[in-house]
Write a protein that binds this DNA or RNA. Structure first.
Lengths: 221, 221
DNA sequence: AATGAATTGATTGTGCACAATATTGGTGTG
DNA sequence: CACACCAATATTGTGCACAATCAATTCATT
């Protein structure tokens, strides 16, 4: 694996696992000495992360971990609600016992990680479950997009999640696997939709003013 | 607008308008003197275009305009087929006479451009119609993705399109606007789906070996 | 004491130079 | 003549230095 790619993954991992909280500044000097490369390589990685909305770069002010706006948070979840259930029919065309086995293992590990309060593992496994499922539908373009949305969801949960819950409390992912094993397309789609809506509605949107506070309106006489 | 952004747009424009054909090499030196900036700025733009799949960068070999594989072409169209019709319900929630007016103008310009064989304008307007419609659905995350898919579709048509047709021959976009004006959600969704499937099926997939040409087989005696 | 200007320090933006790598054409040898 | 090896050229990869910009503190003035 190329060196850039390596740095990229480490930073992405740190962000989605909530090691680097939303809003954390990311000075190029510090990072360059941490990874032992020059600023050139760091900038490349930061620009990529910025395009994927994991960091934001302000001109002449540098990069910081993106703190998603409420609107962005809702839109990411809505995107998943629109796409992921739609992938189930294609997915079921390929579904077999081997896949079932693999995902059940993953769901178990995820459950243990959550029960054991292993935040990082729990986050990774929750995201992986969703985007590996998406990958099985056979469309790489969509699968990559879903993967990004899943990682962005992790970041969103860092900002707006109920502390302790990094994903879904409503039962666990094995319920979906049961439906897939039984070939219940409609029910599986419905489950997925409900599942994502549940996550969306569990976000704590306390309407912090965020950016661009409108003082005109706030202090209108 | 920042200088980088300006260069980015010019290059993207050149690619989607088929000025730079799929497979064209993009040497950094040449570009840097063309735009009057150093290679640093060019590399930044090229890396962004690579992430968005408009160019491909091979390590130590530089960048060239992406020549989408058949699989990629089909996946991009399938993605649009899955997403765009689903945006119609949300879209209709905001639809009004003003929008209708704007899009009808656009559809007319598009028609003239196509009849006048103004390839570049025709391509731009076709793409814009779709992604501005997507924007109206109110989800920026999805709208941006659709926009990318539309531009990638332009590139795909450069590689696999029937010469002369850069979009849709099955009637034109004003048909959709009629359905939207009448508030026929189902019919509008169906039209969009049909429209995109038509474009997909019009691709000429002649199974060119593409990359990694198997000369063994090609010149087998 | 409060306000505004100026200086300092830290950080990012950009160009340039050199190192690393791939490709092409040539050269020598079996 | 065929083959392998080597050299030359062109192009990309990476680090570094300097310029530009921003934030904060200090200083001067009223």
């Amino acid at each position: 694996m190329s060196n850039d790619e390596n740095i990229y993954r480490q930073m992405l991992k740190a962000i989605v696992e909530h090691q680097l909280p939303p809003g954390a500044r990311l000075p190029e000097d510090r990072l360059s000495e941490a990874f032992g490369v020059s600023r050139t390589g760091i900038r490349k990685v930061l620009q990529r992360l910025a395009l994927e909305h994991f960091v934001v770069i302000e001109k002449n002010k540098g990069a910081q971990v993106n703190h998603p706006s409420e609107a962005e948070a809702l839109e990411v979840l809505d995107s998943r609600i629109l796409i992921e259930p739609q992938l189930i029919p294609a997915l079921l065309g390929y579904w077999n016992a081997e896949h079932s086995e693999r995902f059940r293992t993953m769901a178990k590990e995820e459950k243990y990680a959550e029960e054991g309060n292993q935040l990082a593992d729990s986050i990774q496994l929750t995201a992986r479950f969703h985007y590996e499922l998406a990958t099985l539908a056979g469309n790489k373009v969509l699968a990559n997009f879903v993967q990004q949305l899943c990682y962005r969801s992790s970041l969103i949960l860092a900002a707006y999640g109920t502390r302790g819950s990094v994903g879904c409390d409503c039962g666990d992912h094995s319920e979906l696997l049961d439906l897939l094993d039984q070939g219940h397309t409609d029910k599986a789609q419905h489950w997925m939709s409900h599942h994502l809506r549940h996550i969306k509605s569990s976000l704590i949107l306390d309407s912090k003013p965020e950016e661009n506070i409108d003082f005109q309106r706030l202090f209108a006489r």
